[in-house]
Amino acid sequence: MYAYFIDDLVYEKHHRTLDKLDLLLTQQGVSGRKIKLSRLFDINVSIKDCIASGIKTLVAVGNDATASRLLNHALSLKKREDFSFTFCVVPVGAPNKIARLFDIQNIPDAVNALAAHHIRTFDVGLLNQRHYFITSAIFPKKTALRFHSYTVSSLHPDHHISICNGDMYHTKETIASKKFIPDDGILEAVIAYRPSVSLWSRLRGKNEGGTYQPESFFPIKKIIIKGANKTVSIFADTEKQLTSPIEAVVVSGALEAIINFKAQ
């Protein structure tokens, strides 16, 4: 049995996409309970209700914010009341990094994945014992990583620090390519910098320095991140405000997710 948690924005802006999704789910025989997620909606009550009625698969229909919201509530509830569930995302709107982590690029991918029901276990990151993330947590400039016995800081003026579970930098076939394994019980602390681009290059439209390039990698299980201010605005799957210092730990194998399995 499936429960689809559909974001309010999807109803408002993507109603045609929703009709298409409905049709595909019915065709594949994976339709289920539909729950509309409005801003003031008590998501915990719905999850409890779903689990009580035997629903084991919770599906977020929307973007990363929708998926992150459902994931955080479901994992927090699971910590308090022991139950099991599998998670999936139907990507509607942007950004959709969580869906891409599950190899789901679009709605047909998601429907096929739900029908095939191929499950993979994922580690998740936990910030300040409250906020879960599955892709990465990106911290602003002027933050430092504090490990058990040493600290790491960047000397580059335009850098950022992130804690990654998946390959958010698309480092295929580079030195870092094998580092991002989302079920190895380890997260990667990454320091990335943005190469400076000359004015002439920018005028000529060469914006190669626009993206951050990962430079340093530290495998972690637990780390303290010290921000420049008391309140730090970070991007952990979606935007969050946390109090510094921020403790990040890996919760090994905490999530079972349905992925779009492609046989090699």
Binding site: Y150, V152, S153, L155, I175, K178, E215, S216, F218
Partner: peptide, 23 residues
């Protein structure tokens, strides 16, 4: 081997303290 390197301390990074690693 490049893919087996566990920790990379990049060019613009400074590590201070007792650094320990298993890899």
């Amino acid at each position: 081997k490049e893919g087996q390197i566990e920790t990379i301390i990049g060019v613009s990074v400074k590590v201070e303290g007792d650094f320990k690693s298993d890899g």
